[in-house]
Design a binder for these strands. Structure first.
Ligand SMILES: [Mn+2]
Ligand SMILES: [Mn+2]
Ligand SMILES: [Zn+2]
Ligand SMILES: [Zn+2]
Lengths: 156, 156
DNA sequence: CCTCCAAATGAAAATGATTTTCATTATCTC
DNA sequence: GAGATAATGAAAATCATTTTCATTTGGAGG
């Protein structure tokens, strides 16, 4: 809620402006959803976004969250992430390069993986006559805190 | 059903035996589901498996298909594939190495991609203290028959 | 400011895939 | 074969997500 001209705040405002210039009206609900999404560390479900956004705009309905998330995705401002539990997660898109996810099978934490070395696979696709335009990659395993054998345990 | 000792038939029998030795009873329904899965070219949904298996055992219920698929996955004989439409697809696992999928955004066809050059990414995960034990990679784009005319598509 | 109307909202109902319940059937062990 | 118990299927329950529809509201144009 701080209007401090920080990078995060500027990104929030920029996305609002994008929504508006895409022909959408700016409502208190959409501000709340967008701000909630911006506060989230990484991908999370509609229910979570709803809970967070409700702290900003309490009478916000879950339906509106779904609709706003859909609009954000449609406008390319957010993207979905699909893990193994059949629920869709959402996150704001980074401006430039995309990222993948490290999903801990023990604690469920989701960390970002910025690296993306898939050029080789994309060529493999091309070689078969398939033109790759997008990909989804999720890595599953155990995070630092959850290493099965005597791993380190750090407080968050 | 043909008892021809072919490779496909041997794989079918082998899987049946695995199910049995895992403590499951062999029923006509499970044979039908397993055979249907074996006939499928690539990953397909429970509804599709049901339709196919019904041709072998007509009074098969969809519920049983779900339960059998779950059992196969639990025993490591089959695996799930998750695409963008929120429905789970199933396919028998190859014995040795895994494969990924080329999903056509135009016609919906799913092709196999045997290559898997993810060692680099797995190391990247390790460097952060994350131990990668599995990954899911799906590539989206346009198959040979669906190449858009002169359209420009860049990786997400 | 004021008006107006399409866009947006939210409560409730609908959907659609998947799961659970429970009474009945069938496999496999003894 | 008999019996224990796993498996089955019809119907009902879940659960995330979407649709419906009556009501509210943003913001373009006056
Ligand atoms: Mn992310
Ligand atoms: Mn496959
Ligand atoms: Zn963890
Ligand atoms: Zn195609």
């Amino acid at each position: 809620m701080v209007r401090d001209g920080s990078a995060a705040e500027r990104r929030f405002e920029g996305r609002l402006r994008s929504l508006r210039s895409a022909g959408h009206r700016i409502t208190a609900q959409r501000r709340a959803v967008l701000r909630a999404l911006a506060m989230m560390g990484c991908a999370c479900g509609a229910e979570d976004v709803h809970a967070r956004a409700r702290r900003i705009y309490p009478r916000l309905g879950l339906v509106t969250v779904y609709r706003t998330l859909a609009a954000l995705v449609r406008e390319g401002l957010a993207q979905t992430v699909q893990l193994d539990d059949g629920r869709v997660r959402y996150e704001l898109r980074d401006d430039g390069r995309h990222h993948h996810h490290l999903v801990c099978l023990s604690c469920g934490s989701i960390a970002r993986l910025e690296a993306c070395a898939l050029g080789r696979l994309q060529s493999a696709g091309l070689r078969r006559g398939f033109r790759v335009t997008a990909h989804r990659l999720e890595l599953f395993g155990y995070c630092e805190d959850c290493q099965p054998s005597g791993g380190r345990h750090e407080a968050r």
